[in-house]
């Protein structure tokens, strides 16, 4: 089975801090990591390979340094890495990003399953996964929390909803976006890390893809950012002290409006 996992390198949110004076993002020393949701996609891809056999290819679109994310993915059990990187992709919104990734996936020989995290932690759009499946014209199941059954032809999965979950059957190839509940990612093995070190990453530019140049990067992106601003930081409020009984009384009084 050919399994593809689409990942994104993002700034580590744990490190994201706001400068209290300028009220802007402090980026110095912010480490780049694999999008937390994509870590579950990588793990699930490796588990499918362990169940069904086959090969896992990790793919990412990003700047040259995104190669590190692919090496990390190989350390976690992926077999190959493909970096899609070109200045021509700069300014891509979710439309252009999913188009570019779909073009790259079509360049790979065949695929049965495409996995990706439900969204990336920097943009939080959850639009690129569905975008890829639409460009490829394959079925999708989003917010997958469990792959119940899978074989060469079909899969049965559980899709998380606001109230619980749906059980959905799909033919393959299919794209799944996954949520945290699907698994607990393993730590990289020593063997994996050795392999990652020596792994050769395939690198594709716009010229390597069978893509319409007008649909790439900023030119191919319907949306445009016109303003960026920092929201007014929420300020800490009033502290209430006293015995458990006293603070409860006071709080109940203060919250009268909210709880009726």
């Amino acid at each position: 089975m050919n399994i593809i996992v689409c990942i994104k390198q993002v700034p580590n949110t744990t490190d994201v801090r706001i400068d209290p004076v300028t009220n802007t993002l402090i980026r110095d020393g912010v480490e780049s990591v694999i999008n937390p949701f994509d870590a579950y996609a990588i793990e699930e891809a490796v588990r499918i390979k362990e169940r069904c056999g086959g090969k896992v290819t990790a793919i990412t679109m990003g700047p040259p340094q995104a190669e590190n994310a692919l090496k990390e993915a190989i350390g976690l059990g992926c077999d190959e890495g493909v970096l899609v990187s070109d200045r021509k992709f700069a300014g891509s919104d979710t439309w252009a990003t999913s188009y570019t990734l779909a073009c790259a996936i079509e360049k790979l020989e065949t695929y049965d399953v495409i996995l990706t995290g439900k969204q990336a932690s920097d943009g939080d759009t959850a639009q690129v996964g569905p975008g890829i499946s639409t460009h490829l014209d394959i079925p999708q199941v989003t917010y997958v929390k469990k792959i119940v059954e899978i074989n060469d032809k079909a899969a049965k999965v559980e899709r998380m909803t606001e109230e619980g979950y749906d059980v959905v059957e799909t033919p393959l190839p299919c794209l799944f976006t996954v949520v945290k509940e699907i698994n607990t990612p393993r730590m990289p093995s020593l063997k994996g890390m050795m392999r990652a070190k020596s792994a050769k990453i395939t690198k594709w530019t716009a010229a390597d893809l069978d893509a319409d140049p007008a649909a790439l990067g900023l030119d191919g992106s319907p949306t445009r950012v016109v303003k960026i601003f920092t929201p007014e930081a929420r300020k800490g409020g009033e502290m209430i002290s006293g015995s458990a009984g006293e603070v409860s009384k006071e709080l109940a009084e203060l919250l009268k409006g909210e709880v009726v």
């Binding site: 700034p11 949110t13 994201v16 993002l25 303003k227 960026i228 920092t230 929201p231």
Partner: peptide
Amino acid sequence: FGGNIMAT
């Protein structure tokens, strides 16, 4: 960025 910035 997790609500740290707003974009229009």
